[in-house]
């Protein structure tokens, strides 16, 4: 991997971590004020994904010593990944389908899968696997969490885009705020970015490729991460200029 590629990966990861933590902190603080379950779930997922999983992955893949640090990062990373996937599907369930039986079962199966796989991953981090083996993203336990993650992001994206379509119809009648309407679109795009970032390496792994060292795979992941990070920022921490632009555009269309 050359220097330019390394820089792209570093920048995309740093942006993802920075924006994710900023959004996560804001949503958790909002949840403390409103006592709302969805904002708590979304806040925790932002803190767990970008705040825990990404830095731990960097440590596991970048260094081999000290071994205790790498094992600790792998251990904490598994907890973060399971937490991230669990709260993401809980957010989608509670926000879009709180009364649907199939959604409750999808959440249960998803959480059971990620918790079991994370326990296996934690056992490996504690000594069942060597430090270098901890980098193996094609291990079945890692793949199982990956599949749960892909399913969760796919579900989130579909629900968000479907609701965005409904909000657009409402907006024509003046019954929807343009900024809130746009937030559904952006959240769907965040899910698409996450879907590509987690789904492409998973697919490459299933096809027998080296998902971690394959350059196109890494570039696709980095591009999807940057795309998702920009959408996350615009959705939950938008600059005032973006909000004003949305409002102006809606006024012009009215």
């Amino acid at each position: 991997m050359d220097l330019q590629m390394g820089l792209v990966l570093l920048l995309s990861t740093a942006a993802y971590i920075g924006v994710g933590i900023a959004v996560g902190v804001r949503l958790v603080r909002l949840a403390r004020r409103t006592k709302g379950f969805p904002e708590r779930m979304l806040g925790i997922s932002c803190l767990a994904g970008p705040g825990l999983v990404a830095p731990c992955l960097v440590v596991v893949h970048a260094i081999a010593e000290p071994e205790a640090l790498v094992r600790a990062a792998a251990f904490v990373g598994q907890i973060g990944y399971a937490l991230f996937c669990s709260v993401m599907v809980m957010f989608t369930w509670q926000c879009f389908r709180p009364d649907e039986g199939w959604a409750r079962w999808l959440v249960r199966v998803s959480i059971a899968t990620v918790v079991f796989s994370a326990i296996v991953g934690m056992a490996r981090a504690l000594g069942l696997a060597s430090v270098l083996e901890l980098r193996d993203m094609d291990h079945w336990a890692y793949r199982a969490i990956g599949i749960a993650s892909v399913v969760g992001h796919l579900w989130t994206g579909l629900e968000s885009f479907a609701y965005y379509g409904r909000m657009r119809k409402r907006r024509v009648l003046g019954l929807a705020d343009p900024v809130v309407t746009n937030r559904f679109l952006l959240w769907g795009m965040v899910a698409c970015g996450a879907l590509v970032a987690s789904g492409v390496p998973l697919a490459v792994g299933f096809l027998g490729g080296d998902s971690f060292n394959d350059v196109p795979t890494r570039l696709a992941g980095a591009a999807a991460t940057i795309f998702g990070t920009v959408c996350l920022q615009l959705a939950f921490l938008p600059p005032q200029s973006y909000v004003r632009w949305l409002q102006k555009r809606a006024l012009a269309a009215a």
Binding site: R26, L27, L30, T34, G36, P38, E39, L42, C95, F96, P98, E159, Y163, M167, A176, D177, V179, V180, R183, F184, W187, A235, F236, P238
Partner: peptide, 14 residues
Amino acid sequence: APDAPDAVFRRLGG
């Protein structure tokens, strides 16, 4: 009524 998605997403904006 329980939280509709639009109410949730309005809140998430802060």
